[in-house]
């Protein structure tokens, strides 16, 4: 236990905030009038959707940065953010199916919103496979940046699906304001904020690991060029 807190103690700061948000989401806040208890999963759902949106946006921006500047830092940003975004998209899909079973009576329907989200998930899974399967660093970075930019088109479309087409997915953020009572907005924004903190923390941790891995590669290359040169 002591070892657990000796170094890297700072990552444990976010955990209580997240758990507090979860507690407030599931137990602390009042029930929804129509949907009852099942609506509470929504807070978590929206939170992970917001984080996934942020994560993929970071990936897209970092990919543009990489294509312009060709520096390793941008690639690390893009890769770490895409990984986290994919994990959070998985959470959206899982929490969405749990909620859909209760609210719509079906685990899954081929609604525009659901389809667009699933496509996004599959594409970014392919993006991660592309990164996993390629060996040349520069090629990997360039190709994955191009794929990420093409894939990012789906993110705004996914956001707008429920506004452009008839969809059974509820709309919360409309032009007229937030379609939700204040008592429900508090836990929603709380879980959004807490999950954004988790995202930032995870980015920091993941990028640190990637940088350490790059250090190993750099050393290997340095030794190799020393021996050969």
């Amino acid at each position: 236990m002591k070892r657990l807190f000796a170094k890297d103690w700072w990552i444990w700061i976010v955990l209580p905030i997240m758990l507090l948000a979860l507690y407030y989401d599931f137990i602390g806040s009042p029930n929804d009038v129509q949907l009852g208890a099942s609506a509470r999963i929504l807070y978590f759902h929206i939170g992970s959707a917001a984080v996934a949106g942020i994560a993929f946006t970071v990936t897209a921006v970092a990919s543009i940065g990489y294509l312009i500047q060709r520096t390793v830092v941008w690639d690390i940003w893009a890769a770490a953010s895409a990984e986290i975004g994919t994990v959070f998209t998985t959470m959206i899909l899982v929490s969405g199916t749990i909620w859909g079973r209760v609210a719509w009576g079906a685990w899954w329907t081929w609604d525009p919103r659901l389809t667009a989200t699933l496509i996004l998930w599959v594409i970014f899974a392919g993006y991660l496979l592309l990164r996993e399967w390629s060996d040349n660093f520069e090629r990997r970075a360039t190709y994955s940046a191009i794929i990420a930019l093409i894939a990012y088109i789906d993110v705004p479309i996914d956001y707008m699906t429920i506004r452009w087409w008839r969809s059974i997915h509820p709309v919360i953020f409309t032009n007229q304001g937030i379609n939700m009572p204040v008592s429900m907005q508090i836990p929603m924004f709380l879980s959004m904020g807490a999950m954004t903190l988790v995202f930032i923390l995870w980015m920091a941790v993941r990028m640190r690991l990637m940088r350490a891995e790059m250090g190993v590669v750099d050393l290997k290359n340095a030794i190799r060029s020393h021996i050969e040169g």
Binding site: K7, D8, L201, V205, L209, A212, E213
Partner: peptide, 11 residues
């Protein structure tokens, strides 16, 4: 995340 940090420290 903690494992990742440990690994990067080790690397």
């Amino acid at each position: 995340m903690y494992r990742m940090l440990q690994k990067s420290r080790k690397l």
